[in-house]
C-alpha cells in the first residue's frame, strides 16, 4: 500500500517537474516583448470593451495609445477626460480635452404626432424593417421603434418609451460610445455636446421632405421654413435639404429658436420652465469656449 502511494506521488512529481521545465523553456523561446505600459493603460481604462473609441475593446485601445505615443484622435468616450488624463499621466504626454457628449434621438414622431399608415408584422428589428420599406408611418426618415438602439446599448442608457414608441436616452448612464448611432438604420441618433447642466437644444427631426409632405406625415416634422435660422444670432442653425440643424458648438443655448418653430420640432432639454413673456436676454451664457468642434451630423447629402 505504502509503496503504491509512494510511487504515485513520485511519478506525478517527476511529470510535474518535467512539464515545468519544458514550459519554462517554451515560454522563454516564444516570449513576445510587450510594453508594460499597455497593461497599465488598460487598467486605467473603464474596461467596458464597448468599442466606442473605434477599437476592438479596451486592450486594443491601450495598445494604440502606447504605440502611437500621442493621444490625438484617441479618446475613450466612456472614461471621459479624467480617464484620458490618467492615460496621459502613465505615458507622460498631454491628453486632449473633449467635451463630454451624450446621445440624443432626433425624432419626435410619437404615435400621436405621426399616425401609423400600416402595420409591421415582421421581426422586431429596425434593420430588417428599414431594409424592407420606409416604415410604418408616412415619414420615411423617422424612428421605426423596433429598438435596435436599445439592443446595441451596453450601458442600459437607452430605453423604449412604451407610450410614445420612441427611444429615450438616460443622460446619467449614457457614455457616448456611439453604439446606438451605428445601430440606427435611419441615423436618427446623434452624439451631442452634453452642455452645462445637461442642457441641450436640437431639432428632433430628420425629415428631408418638402414642408407640405413632411407636415402631412408628422405633426412635429421640421418643414425647413428657416424661421429658426433667421432667429439665431450665432449662425448655429443651418438649413439643408428642407431640414434645420443646430450646431451644438455654435449654439449658445439662448432658447430663441424653439418658440419660433411653427411645428415645435426644436426640443429643449433640462431647461427651467420658460417664462411666459420672452425676454431679450439670453437665458444662459456658455461657461467656456469650445475647443474641439465635434459634430456628429451625419452626412445628409449621402442619404
Amino acid at each position: 500500500m505504502t509503496t503504491i502511494i509512494l510511487y504515485t506521488v513520485l511519478t506525478l512529481s517527476i511529470i510535474g517537474v518535467l512539464s515545468a521545465i519544458v514550459l519554462y523553456f517554451v515560454a522563454q523561446k516564444f516570449k513576445v516583448y510587450e510594453d508594460p505600459r499597455i497593461d497599465q493603460v488598460e487598467t486605467a481604462l473603464p474596461g467596458a470593451n464597448c468599442g466606442g473609441c473605434g477599437f476592438a475593446g479596451c486592450r486594443a485601445f491601450a495598445e494604440a495609445c502606447v504605440n502611437k505615443g500621442e493621444l490625438t484622435d484617441l479618446f475613450c468616450p466612456v472614461g471621459g477626460n479624467d480617464c484620458m488624463s490618467g492615460v496621459a499621466n502613465i505615458l507622460g504626454i498631454e491628453a486632449e480635452k473633449k467635451d463630454p457628449r451624450v446621445a440624443v434621438v432626433r425624432c419626435n414622431g410619437t404615435c400621436e404626432h405621426r399616425p401609423k399608415t400600416n402595420f409591421f408584422d415582421g421581426p422586431v428589428s429596425c434593420a430588417i424593417a428599414a431594409s424592407l420599406y420606409s416604415g410604418d408611418t408616412g415619414c420615411q426618415y423617422g424612428c421605426l421603434g423596433c429598438g435596435d438602439c436599445v439592443v446595441a446599448c451596453d450601458f442600459d442608457a437607452i430605453y423604449m418609451n412604451q407610450v410614445t414608441g420612441l427611444p429615450e436616452v438616460d443622460d446619467e448612464k449614457c457614455v457616448a460610445c456611439g453604439a446606438c448611432v451605428k445601430a440606427c438604420p435611419k441615423t436618427l441618433i446623434e452624439l451631442r455636446k452634453k452642455g452645462p447642466k445637461d442642457r441641450k437644444i436640437y431639432v428632433a427631426c430628420r425629415n428631408q421632405d418638402k414642408g407640405g409632405v413632411a407636415r402631412k406625415s408628422c405633426a412635429v416634422a421640421c418643414i425647413g421654413c428657416s424661421k429658426c435660422e433667421k432667429e439665431c444670432k450665432y449662425d448655429a442653425i443651418t438649413i439643408a435639404n428642407n431640414l434645420a440643424f443646430i450646431d451644438a458648438d455654435k449654439c449658445k443655448l439662448c432658447r430663441k429658436c424653439a418658440p419660433v418653430c411653427p411645428t415645435n420640432a426644436i426640443i429643449e432639454l433640462n431647461f427651467p420652465p420658460r417664462k411666459v413673456v420672452l425676454t431679450e436676454q439670453p437665458v444662459s451664457a456658455p461657461e467656456k469656449p469650445i475647443e474641439v468642434p465635434v459634430s456628429a451630423e451625419p452626412k445628409s447629402s449621402a442619404i
Binding site: 415582421g122 421581426p123 428589428s125 434593420a127 430588417i128 431594409s131
Partner: peptide, 12 residues
C-alpha cells in the same frame, strides 16, 4: 421563425 428576414439582413 423569421428565417428569411434575418438571412436577407445577413446577406446585405
Amino acid at each position: 421563425r423569421p428565417l428569411l428576414d434575418y438571412i436577407r439582413l445577413g446577406k446585405g
